[in-house]
Design a protein around this nucleic acid. Structure first.
Length: 522
RNA sequence: GCUCCCAUCGUCUAGUCCGGUCUAGGACGCCAGGUUCUCAUCCUGGAAACUGGGGUUCGAAUCCCCAUGGGAGCACCA
């Protein structure tokens, strides 16, 4: 039964999906716009959940009140939706394991923290931040292991408790069990650590009367509380995994399975950061990229279907997604390929799922801004044609610059070069005649039918007949002079494209202008 | 510094788990030719890689070790 093999292989690649519907999550902290790396992590988790009929949870890790901002949380939700990555449970949508904002789960964390303190698995630490920073510095320079010194380890629990209540400021640290700890990573296999290297990590901080959980503690609690079965995340979290698993174990909670993939790297192989250009989905969106482009690009950056297919809709990604297609090596951002994907999606509006024409509102805004102040009335269809015409030829990153420079002739009369109007060995009279017949063809076309298709049909028909008798048709005899009359350039989009965009009146005016230059020798 | 992770064309990658079918496949980019009124698109073709060294084996891109290179982590951030 060879036909059954691929399907069977797919199931075997992820056996637990057979017995259990996965619950996965992303847990961004709202300290910035939705990062491209976070978006990719979200996408992988979403694909995994949908592929196996599971649940995708969006949890917000906003325990750092200093840095967390509501507007960033809104951006995360908004951009994910825009990309088509929807979540089944989480902020805004709710669910059975809420609340989904860590800042609203403080009592839950405290409930898990108290027994740890009572059983002396955790203790209060009163070292100042300055002391700790100084100790770290000393450790680093002297080549020692960088970890907490353990200064408060042996404080008597009862007294420490009283002091904490009195001073209202302390750190709760875990007595890290010293052991060799290993876990099975779903993409990398076994990864082992010596927990001695971690030291007594901080679980929470006491500020006033309340405990605020710190990252590893909050995550361990939430992943278990929310019944998360699989954690797919960047490999910058590998060292956190044993910490979270140990915390969970000490709490009597279960841990999910983990899969770590490499992060997105910039051109210079370093972490993608501001100085490399766009780092957030919003920036790409505002530049005018299609959501389909970003999803397609991000998916193939670090994941591969094992086939030659490059173009994927979200649904196609869901159908093809498996964990073993995930790369273990880092993937470098490839701007050229992003541009290529955008051109592919530009030419395939029928495949697109969010906007049905090539023009996104963001791109329209951008073009309208460039158009501002020009004297022609621009209809929306015209802008769409313009967008498609320009995007087919140039990277999206340069659109504004191009419209203001290279493609100025869409908005203002070009300077015409008499010689440039000539196609091959045409005489002045030939050029004039060509422009004349163009006028004759164009004039009867009503404004309402002034479209790319109609113009092409009529002009092409004429171009075919306007050839030297006895020889094969030379369309250039008509099309070249018209195109140059409209653009003033040696290289430009075709005459139909330009004419459709600048409109009937302007087209005829420019043809007339060209004729004037031809008949009036300088 | 210590720990962990990674290593196929410039880039994303297939192939690695189960050594032979790999004179290493696809895509982006690049180069050349063709189609086309020019440019772009499109089509055809091309250059372009198994990091190095040791093993194991009849045979290694594929398994093992070392080296080198790259990345990440080592907070009262997440």
């Amino acid at each position: 039964m060879p036909t059954l093999l691929p399907a069977l292989k797919k199931l075997l690649a992820f056996p637990s999906a057979l017995v259990q519907r996965p619950r996965v999550r992303i847990a961004p902290s709202p300290t910035g716009l939705l990062h491209l790396g976070t978006a990719r992590t979200a996408l992988f988790n979403f694909l995994f959940a949908k592929r196996y009929g599971g649940t995708f949870v969006l949890r917000i890790e906003d325990t750092d009140i200093e840095r967390s901002k509501p507007e960033f949380e809104r951006d995360i939700a908004e951009q994910l939706r825009w990309l088509g990555i929807s979540w089944d449970e989480g902020i805004e949508t709710g669910g059975a394991f809420g609340p989904y904002r860590q800042s609203e789960r403080l009592p839950i964390y405290e409930r898990y923290l108290q027994p740890l303190l009572e059983h002396d698995r955790a203790y209060f630490c009163f070292c100042s931040e300055e002391t700790l920073a100084a100790q770290r510095e000393t450790q680093r320079t002297s080549g020692e292991i960088q970890r907490y010194s353990g200064a408060c380890q042996s404080l008597a629990p009862k007294e420490a408790r009283q002091r904490a209540a009195r001073e209202k400021r302390a750190i709760v640290r875990l007595r890290m069990p010293e052991e060799h700890f290993a876990f099975e990573d779903l993409v990398r296999g076994e990864i082992a650590f010596d927990t001695v290297l971690f030291g007594d990590i901080a679980l929470a901080k006491l500020d006033g009367k309340r405990f605020f959980p710190l990252y590893n503690f909050a995550v361990a609690v939430d992943d278990a509380e929310m019944r998360i079965t699989h954690v797919l995340r960047g490999d910058d979290h590998i060292a956190n995994t044993p910490k979270q698993m140990i915390i969970a174990r000490l709490l009597g909670l279960s841990s999910p399975q983990y899969a770590h993939f490499s992060m997105i790297l910039a051109q210079d192989r370093s972490k993608l950061s501001k100085r490399h250009g766009a780092t957030s989905v919003r920036e790409l969106r505002e530049a005018g990229y299609f959501p389909e482009t970003i999803v397609n690009f991000l998916a193939l950056l670090g994941w591969n279907p094992g086939t030659d297919q490059e173009l994927f809709t979200l649904q196609e990604l869901i159908d093809a997604f498996t964990l073993d297609g995930i790369q273990s090596g880092g993937a470098i951002w490839n701007q050229d390929k992003l541009e290529w994907f955008n051109r592919q999606w530009l030419g395939a509006p029928a495949r697109r799922w969010l906007t049905h024409d090539a023009l996104t509102p963001e791109l329209e805004k951008k073009i309208v801004a460039v158009l501002a102040g020009n004297r022609w009335h621009v209809r929306k269809e015209t802008i769409a044609t313009l967008a498609a015409t320009v995007l087919e030829r140039a990277p999206l990153a340069n659109v504004e610059e191009l419209l203001a420079g290279e493609y100025r002739y869409f908005f203002e009369k070009p300077r015409l070069d008499r010689e440039l109007l000539r196609w091959k060995d045409m005489a002045d009279e030939d050029v004039e005649r060509a422009l004349d017949s163009a006028k004759e063809i164009l004039e009867p076309i009503p404004e309402g039918e002034w479209t790319q298709n109609r113009l092409e049909r009529d002009l092409m028909a004429a171009a075919e007949s306007l050839s030297v008798s006895g020889e094969k048709p030379d369309r250039g005899r008509l099309l070249w002079p018209v195109r140059v009359a409209l653009s003033g350039k040696k290289q430009s989009p075709g005459p139909f494209d330009i004419a459709a965009i600048i409109g009937k009146e302007e087209t005829l005016a420019r043809i007339q202008e060209a004729q004037n230059i031809i008949v009036r020798p300088k």
